[in-house]
């Protein structure tokens, strides 16, 4: 368990993120000072929580493999717990839910061991087959399909998808001379979050035409396109520092992350709308729940992972 020497690009990346957050904090404080009559409490809270998120992310990425896997596994746990707390569950499934939780340490153990073959089929195949069988042992058939469907969808989103973030850290570092073992994940998370922010900012400034009015009435076509192109534009210059991607591959990655991030966002929005809640939880003040923050990553993480894995690993 030795600390890994940090590549220069990773150090610069975190310095850059810290700088961005300082600017965000500065702006939110200045806004409140200049217009004391308006309440910027929500924005301030949001930026403060961003600091916390970046701190946790730094711990997850920078220390060593075991720490990374544990921290990211705990994030999956919180996300899955938030999901199960939101959806209706059957009393009869108490033990089944316990088994579902057990999938989390196992899935992250495969990551830690770098065992790609099991990592990639464990939840989609073995857990998928095991949980309904366990459910049948309790014998409650009323609501069976809904119970097993919602449970497995939650595991796929909160555990399987998100665990791809952790697997990026155990891919061989020598395939990524610029970013080492951490570059890919920093690249993915940074671009996904920037895409969220860019879609919001573009949408606020010139958005008119609604893109998915039934699911997310605040989302506009201009916000979506502005976000995707901003992300793609940023993906290209960052790629040589953090990834093995060529210019055209990086452009593709940028569009992929922009598009997938949007889909992840509205997918969780659809879930919340179905359940009649505004936020998925209260864990992250100013943001809502942990799923409200991870929504885009549930789509970008596996898609970007397999894109890069196919091209370079």
């Amino acid at each position: 368990m030795t600390a890994v020497a940090l590549p220069l690009s990773v150090q610069v990346a975190f310095a850059g993120i810290a700088l961005l957050l300082c600017i965000a904090s500065g702006i939110s404080i200045a806004l409140q000072r200049r217009r004391p009559e308006r309440d910027y409490g929500e924005l301030r809270q949001r930026v403060k929580t961003w600091w916390l998120i970046v701190a946790v992310f730094a711990v997850a990425v920078l220390i060593n493999r075991a720490t990374s896997v544990i921290v990211l596994g705990l994030i999956s746990f919180l996300a899955f717990k938030e999901y199960l707390s939101l959806i209706p569950t059957r009393r009869a499934d108490h033990r089944v839910l316990f088994w579902a939780y057990l999938a989390i340490p196992l899935q992250y153990y495969w990551v830690w061991a770098g065992w790609y073959g099991v990592f990639i089929i464990f939840i989609p195949v073995y857990v998928f087959l095991w949980l309904p069988m366990r459910m049948i042992l309790t014998g409650e058939t009323q609501g069976f399909l809904r119970a097993i469907g919602t449970l497995h969808w939650g595991l796929m989103i909160c555990v399987f998808s998100l665990s791809h973030m952790a697997f990026m850290l155990v891919l061989p570092a020598e395939n990524n001379p610029g970013g080492g073992s951490m570059g890919l994940l920093i690249y993915l998370v940074f671009l996904t979050e920037i895409n969220d922010v860019a879609q919001y900012v573009w949408g606020k400034s010139l958005g008119k035409r609604k893109i998915v009015p039934k699911v997310s009435p605040n989302k506009t076509l201009a916000g979506f396109l502005g976000g995707v192109f901003s992300t793609a534009a940023l993906a290209v210059p960052l790629a040589p520092w953090l990834t093995p991607l060529t210019v055209y591959q990086a452009l593709g990655a940028g569009f992929l992350i922009g598009l997938a991030g949007f889909v992840g966002d509205v997918t969780i929005s659809a879930l919340k709308r179905d359940l009649g809640v505004k936020d998925s939880g209260t864990l992250l003040p100013g943001h809502g729940g942990i799923l409200d923050r991870l929504d885009s990553l549930t789509y970008t993480a596996p898609l970007f992972f397999h894109y890069v894995y196919f091209l370079h690993y």
């Binding site: 717990k81 199960l84 108490h94 033990r95 316990f98």
Partner: peptide
């Protein structure tokens, strides 16, 4: 009557 704890918020 249950002794297995299952986490929920």
């Amino acid at each position: 009557g249950e002794f297995v704890l299952v986490p929920f918020f």
